[in-house]
């Protein structure tokens, strides 16, 4: 993702952008990203007045899943925000957000397999094969693995252009994640639909921004304009003639 905007050099605590991220922004985001986990752990032990409720396993399972989806959405928000708000260096946070998404997806699956199903692999296997919403969720988990593995600078360099093509898988993963959530819901689909709406906007932005799509759209608009002009001219002509 290279944009034409030049690196912003506003002085902040006398630190360069590079050092600001390394010393302040990244540690802050890292700690903030651990907050959902800290909250769940506090609730588990009843610390700080938190509670995971009467069925803590189910609570952890759902909370981890939702947090994972939140991080996937945050990861997808980086590009639109840095382009629209003209903050190109925001890209430096994207990898961390993506890896946290993977972390919470793994936690979600671990709670499900170890705590909810008592590590009964036959049941886990039967679920993945027989329950479509679990098949969908599990596929998203599998697809995230290559992305996490290739997230290092070294892998980015090694894969070159193929890296960004591979990482476009996140669009599919996000869709599978929301689908999994939607399907899992017993009857009240309002929350999954909200996620679907956010995802539609985030993906829609990418479609609208795509050069080829823009060129095509511009062409269509042009043709439309020309056609209406022609029609209007024709209408004028017929009005004038008796």
């Amino acid at each position: 993702m290279t944009t034409s905007a030049p690196p912003v050099k506003r002085p902040f605590l006398g630190l360069s952008v590079e050092r600001r991220y390394r010393l302040i922004y990244k540690p802050v985001v890292f700690l903030a990203a651990l907050a959902p986990l800290a909250w769940m752990v506090c609730g588990l032990f009843g610390w700080l007045g938190c509670s995971d409720g009467v069925d803590p396993v189910k609570f952890l399972e759902l909370r981890c899943g939702k947090t994972a989806l939140n991080f996937i959405m945050l990861t997808l928000m980086v590009t639109p925000v840095r382009e629209l708000a003209k903050l190109p260096h925001l890209i430096r946070l994207r990898r961390m957000l993506g890896l946290f998404a993977f972390f919470y997806v793994l936690l979600h699956f671990t709670v499900y397999a170890v705590l909810d199903l008592d590590l009964n692999w036959r049941m886990v296997g039967a679920d993945i094969v027989k329950r479509p919403y679990i098949t969908v969720g599990f596929s998203a988990l599998l697809l995230l693995i290559p992305l996490a593995v290739t997230s290092s600078n070294r892998m980015m360099r090694r894969l070159g252009r193929r890296w960004s093509r591979l990482h476009r898988l996140i669009y599919l993963i996000a869709a599978l994640g929301v689908w999994h959530f939607y399907w899992e819901e017993k009857i009240d689909e309002r929350t999954p639909l909200k996620y679907a709406a956010v995802l539609a906007v985030l993906l829609g932005y990418r479609v609208a921004r795509n050069a080829r799509v823009r060129r095509w759209l511009a062409g269509r608009m042009d043709a439309l304009r020309r056609r209406t002009q022609r029609k209007r001219a024709l209408a004028c002509d017929t009005q004038r003639s008796p």
């Binding site: 069925d55 189910k58 027989k130 329950r131």
Partner: peptide, 8 residues
């Protein structure tokens, strides 16, 4: 969407 074989 889910099995009824076991319960929590």
């Amino acid at each position: 969407s889910w099995s009824q074989r076991t319960e929590v």
